[in-house]
Amino acid sequence: MALYSIIIPVYKSSDSLKIIVSELSKMQTELGYKFEIIFVNDSPFFLETVNMLGNLRIGNDNVKIVTFRKNQGQHIATLAGINIALGDFIITMDDDLQHPVSELPKLIEGIQTSNAEGVFAIPNYRNRKHSFWRSVASYLLKKSDSIFLEKPKGLILSSYRIMTKDLAQATLNSYNAMPAVSSLMVNASNNLINVKVKHTSREFGETNYTFSKLLSLALNGILYYSSLPLRILGIVGIIGFLGSMLFIISIIFRKLAVGIDFPGYASTVTLISFFGGLNLFAFGIIGEYLLRIIKEQQKPNLKDLIK
């Protein structure tokens, strides 16, 4: 029987955790799944969370608790859970019940009945329960992912997902200082799909993903997982250099053909254009070198390239 490791980053939550464990235990009994539940406590000094996690561990042999020394963020917490997971499949979900436990079988069915290495749950947008500004920021994040990440066309990323053990390991092997788990998955594999699930209103606590944090996440995704900005810089630099050379030729031609009324104009403009173009060309070359340095740092483990 396959073991499913369910990783739940926890930040200042308590009552919702008890409901999650109760529903997962019921699902194990009724549907015959085998779960390993890993809570990663990202709020170590919030006593309600600490006490609740301690209580949940009593009598639940399949519950594991990981506690950080200080707040590290959802993505680091997720990776820490993946690092100790023993399951054949890794599931990640939030701690606020906006990812309904009852929808979990859809994720499991999605990865079992397809050849996919990862499945992202996406809400039925008519039932999506987010604030207006959160929805706007999420839309911008989705658009930046579409432009800058080399992901399968139409794929929508989310934190409610399931992946194979191999893909989870590949994700671990390539994480950086400011990781985004979904982006790491996309970097490791294109064999990813979506399934639609219900999305419920937040019953406990408040979201930590403000408009500014989501925009920051989008910026990190662009800078860490895409070489497109450096490519653009390189192209602009080379085009600028070629343009300045053409301008210099036109100034020289004008000087020789019809003359220029202002003494020193031709030499001044020529020098400014030359060195300006040279700077742009240098920026382009530097961009290409930076791109190669980044690619070298991100080179994959050869074992992770093999399914």
Rank of each mutant, 00 (worst) to 15 (best):
M1D: 14
Y4F: 05
S5L: 06
I6G: 10
P9G: 02
P9E: 04
V10D: 01
K12S: 06
S16P: 03
L17D: 01
K18C: 12
K18S: 14
V21M: 02
E23V: 00
S25Y: 00
Q28C: 08
G32H: 05
E36A: 04
I38N: 02
V40P: 00
D42N: 08
D42S: 03
P44Q: 03
F45M: 13
V50R: 02
V50G: 02
L56N: 02
L56S: 09
R57H: 05
I58P: 03
G59W: 01
K64F: 12
I65W: 02
I65V: 15
T67R: 01
F68C: 06
R69A: 14
R69G: 15
G73V: 02
H75N: 15
I76S: 00
L79P: 11
L79R: 06
I82L: 12
I82P: 03
L86Q: 13
D88W: 03
T92N: 12
D94M: 09
D96Y: 02
P100D: 07
S102K: 09
L104Q: 04
K106H: 12
P123A: 11
N124T: 10
N124G: 08
N124I: 08
Y125Q: 11
K129M: 15
S131C: 12
F132A: 08
R134L: 12
A137N: 06
L140E: 03
S144V: 13
I147H: 01
L149Q: 02
L157C: 09
S158W: 00
T164A: 06
A168N: 05
A168I: 06
Q169I: 14
Q169G: 12
T171N: 05
T171H: 03
L172T: 01
S174A: 15
Y175R: 03
P179T: 09
A180W: 03
V181F: 06
V181G: 06
S183G: 10
L184T: 00
I193P: 08
N194V: 07
H199F: 06
E203Y: 00
E206N: 14
N208R: 05
T210D: 11
L214I: 12
S216E: 14
L217H: 05
A218I: 07
N220M: 10
I222R: 00
Y224A: 12
S226I: 02
L228S: 02
G234M: 00
I235P: 13
G240V: 09
G240H: 10
F241D: 11
L242R: 07
G243Q: 06
L246H: 11
I252P: 03
A257E: 08
G259M: 07
I260L: 14
I260D: 13
G264S: 13
A266I: 11
S267Q: 15
V269F: 04
I272E: 09
S273W: 03
F275P: 12
G276S: 10
G277F: 05
L278D: 04
N279P: 12
N279I: 11
F281Y: 10
G284W: 05
G284K: 01
I285Q: 09
I286A: 15
I286G: 04
L290V: 04
R292T: 08
I293M: 08
E296P: 05
Q297E: 13
P300R: 10
P300A: 11
L302V: 10
K303R: 02
L305K: 04
I306K: 00
I306P: 12
